[in-house]
Every structure is written in C-alpha cells, then in structure tokens.
C-alpha cells in the first residue's frame, strides 16, 4: 500500500471482475489506450499500469483484468488478495451476468474479509439500450443493498469509463488515508482529508 518510497506516486490496485464477455477487457483497454476492441477474446489475466492525475495528484493505477471464465478461478484468489479496489462488471444485456455479480461480491468479501473494500457495481454495454435485460432500478437496488455505487458504462462509446476508474481510485485513496490516519497518521496522503468517509460497522 504505502510501501513505496515517498518519491513514487501512490499506487492503487484495481481489479476487474465479472462473468465472461461482459466487457472487462473492453473497459480496461478503453481506459488504458482509448481503444475499443470489437472482437471477443477471452482473457486469462492481464495487468496494466498507468500514470494518471487524480484530483491534481499524480498517481499510478494498476489494473488487473481477470478471467470471467470459471476455468481460471484457481488463480483468481491470488489476485483478489492483492487488490485494493474492485470493479464488478456485468452486461445490462445479459441477466446471468448480473446474477453472477452476487458470487463475485461474495468471493471478494471472502478473500478480502472486508465489507468496506472499495467496490463499484458496473453495468456495461449501456449503448445497447434496446437489448437491455437488467433494469437500472434492479441494479441500483442491489448496489444499495451492498452499500456500493452503481454506474452504467459503455466501453464502446466510452461513456463513464473514466468515471468508474476514477471513482474507485478515490475510494481507494480515501480508504488508505483512513487507514493511515488510524495508523497514527503515518501516511503520506495525510493532507488529503476531504474525501474521507466515516465507516462504521
């Protein structure tokens, strides 16, 4: 977390989860390289790093794009463990993928054992409104139930793509600051208090 030498910008580790084919890689690639890949190619695992400006502060984001397929579930835990924030993606055109988010959520909570882990529920493919199977209400209800934010994105049109990553990073950052604060304020992010949220169990 705040292990790196002070000269290094803060590093936030984001993990993309969700069923196969919902657009995890598409979102990632859109965010990383501003490109939209039409052809589907199942991911095993991919990792990216990017330097970005988060509210005027230079930070690095590490994105781990995981496999949607169960075949790779074995290695998933290894990644989940080191993730600091999660984007849980489903496709609004596919109800199954929405149902699957429940499992992913549980899996993450099991590995991280932390109800308040930075987490966003993301309904992708919102450009395909005519093929929508999951209503906005349905999804945001679930998000509310989990106590997380729900955002709809389109990797194709780039709608809200940056938003989900930046929102998540803000959460991660807030989370870290909070931890640092409780750790006698040893953290380097001390000066950025404004985003701290109170977390009560």
């Amino acid at each position: 977390m705040s292990k790196k030498p002070v000269t290094q910008p803060a590093l936030h580790k984001v993990i993309m989860v969700g069923s196969g084919g919902v657009g995890k890689s598409a979102l990632t690639l859109q965010f990383m390289y501003d490109e939209f890949v039409e052809d589907y190619e199942p991911t095993k695992a991919d990792s990216y790093r990017k330097k970005i400006l988060l509210d005027g502060e230079e930070v690095q984001i590490d994105i781990l794009d995981t496999a949607g397929q169960e075949d790779y579930a074995a290695i998933r835990d290894n990644y989940f463990r080191s993730g600091e924030g999660f984007l849980c993606i489903f496709s609004i055109t596919e109800d199954e993928s929405f149902q699957a988010t429940q499992d992913f959520r549980e899996q993450i909570l099991r590995v991280k054992n932390d109800e308040n882990i930075p987490f966003l529920l993301v309904g992708n493919k919102c450009d395909l409104e005519e093929r929508r199977k999951v209503t906005y209400q349905e999804a945001s209800d679930r998000a509310k139930q989990w106590g997380v934010t729900y955002v709809e994105t389109s990797a194709k049109t780039r709608e809200h793509v940056d938003k989900v990553f930046f929102d998540l990073m803000r959460e991660i950052r807030a989370r870290k600051m909070e931890e640092n604060k409780t750790n006698n304020g040893r953290g380097k992010d001390k000066n950025k208090r404004k985003k701290i949220k109170c977390v009560i169990l």
Binding site: K3, K13, A45, D46, S47, Y48, R49, D62, L64, D65, A74, N78, Y79, R81, S82
Partner: peptide, 23 residues
C-alpha cells in the same frame, strides 16, 4: 508458490509485474 502459501507483499508485487509484462 502462492497456492501453497508463499504470500507476501513482494510476491504479490512480482505477480502483478510479471502479469504486466505478459500483457
């Protein structure tokens, strides 16, 4: 190695790094 419990910050760092190089 991680599956048998060799888990540390460094190893996780390495995991991400190797993954990144592969990507």
């Amino acid at each position: 190695e991680m599956n048998v419990g060799f888990i540390s910050k460094q190893r996780e760092e390495l995991l991400w790094e190797v993954q990144r190089i592969i990507t």
